[in-house]
Design a protein around this nucleic acid. Sequence first.
DNA 1: CGGTATTTTGAGCAGTGTCAAAGACGGTGG
DNA 2: CCACCGTCTTTGACACTGCTCAAAATACCG
Lengths: 224, 224
Amino acid sequence: MLNLPFTRKTFMASGYLVRQGDRCDTVSVLLDGYCYGQKDDGEGNCQIVSLAIPSDVIGLEHLYLQTTDHNVRALTTVDVAMIPLSAVQQLSASRPAVAHALGIHQAINHAIAREWIVNIGARDGLRRVAHFLCEFAVRCDAWRGDTAAGYELPMSQEQIGQATGLTAVHVNRMLKTLHAAGLIERSWRNVVFSNWEGLRDVACFSSDYLHPGRQVPAPGYRTV
Amino acid sequence: MLNLPFTRKTFMASGYLVRQGDRCDTVSVLLDGYCYGQKDDGEGNCQIVSLAIPSDVIGLEHLYLQTTDHNVRALTTVDVAMIPLSAVQQLSASRPAVAHALGIHQAINHAIAREWIVNIGARDGLRRVAHFLCEFAVRCDAWRGDTAAGYELPMSQEQIGQATGLTAVHVNRMLKTLHAAGLIERSWRNVVFSNWEGLRDVACFSSDYLHPGRQVPAPGYRTV
DNA sequence: CGGTATTTTGAGCAGTGTCAAAGACGGTGG
DNA sequence: CCACCGTCTTTGACACTGCTCAAAATACCG
């Protein structure tokens, strides 16, 4: 068995799991709830740079970088298993297949970051919000193993705005527009995709960048 | 010695080193020239998602993902050493310190991507261009080991626009504004930082995210 | 030396941001 | 169980950043 030491911990919504500038010595696994990565632009504006859903690993970069360049905060009440960095290092060293899996996870997160750059840099408001919704749905589906009819967005429109580079007011207008186009139904934070194909087309969403089932198998290691 | 097999190859400006969707079986080291990562937004717009300068490693994610989610293209005439994936895998397996160094490189590239998200998502045009110039200068300085008086930008204003989420016309205006503010001098593609502190302040640029000299040392491995 | 790509500039416009206020929801304490 | 309160959502009017289109000037390349 892996026999990994860990500490279970709970954070309230908006609490900090990791702070920018920290010297971090743990890697966490998100057991329940949602988190987001956040970075200050130096003038009070905060940009959301990533999203973590249950089963995601948080802080993999701590294996390689001494300090953290962004905050990680709880979007909802959150339950994590915090593992000492040294334990992760030992495990990766003794189990190359584990190291490989962590590398895959990091590579996918990086790919998601690239897609966010495209989303924010190249698409207009409507497509941006649509794409954001698509990504969230697909990632949640992948985690749960099935396709849900509707999703409870764990974030406010203000936060969606911080993730897409729009204002909360504009996010609201775009959601309304998507509804008017018959692509989504919603009430409060619940979203139902009444026309998934249509939404996907508006967003130009393709799940390729999430690399579903297309990872490189661990090369030549016995997985024991 | 490492004894790594490689093929040296030259690409003309705008040539493709890697194409979106490819199954890639090489990792490249950029020996000379500049490259950029590019992704289509699905509607003809192309967003630049990364920049590679000499000594950068291109395609590290091929170790973990079977297909590539973005293009890598030459910005200038480019000279690379292409290494078979299997050789890199073997080397990482036999030399943990090498694997660790690659992880650091990947983590820093990821950190840069996060900062680009902040730049494009949270800053206005002027700050965006200023930040872009700062990052380019600092990365080039780090590579060459000294601080240059001026920099030859290896890209057109159109391309700067694709990297910052602005139009070429607006990039031009922002460069003019930066000049008018006494922060930069320039002629054609050559840029001189006549007031580095000022530019840095406008951009809210901090080199922390490039993690200069703050990587985690390879844990417990003998480097031989 | 001509051709092509890039830079530069101007004018007008569209998409987003800003500001402000009203309405909806959910939690809390009496 | 209900009233209150704070947060979030929704809406409108208006301002402004950045985009579009177009053309001239400039630099590079064969």
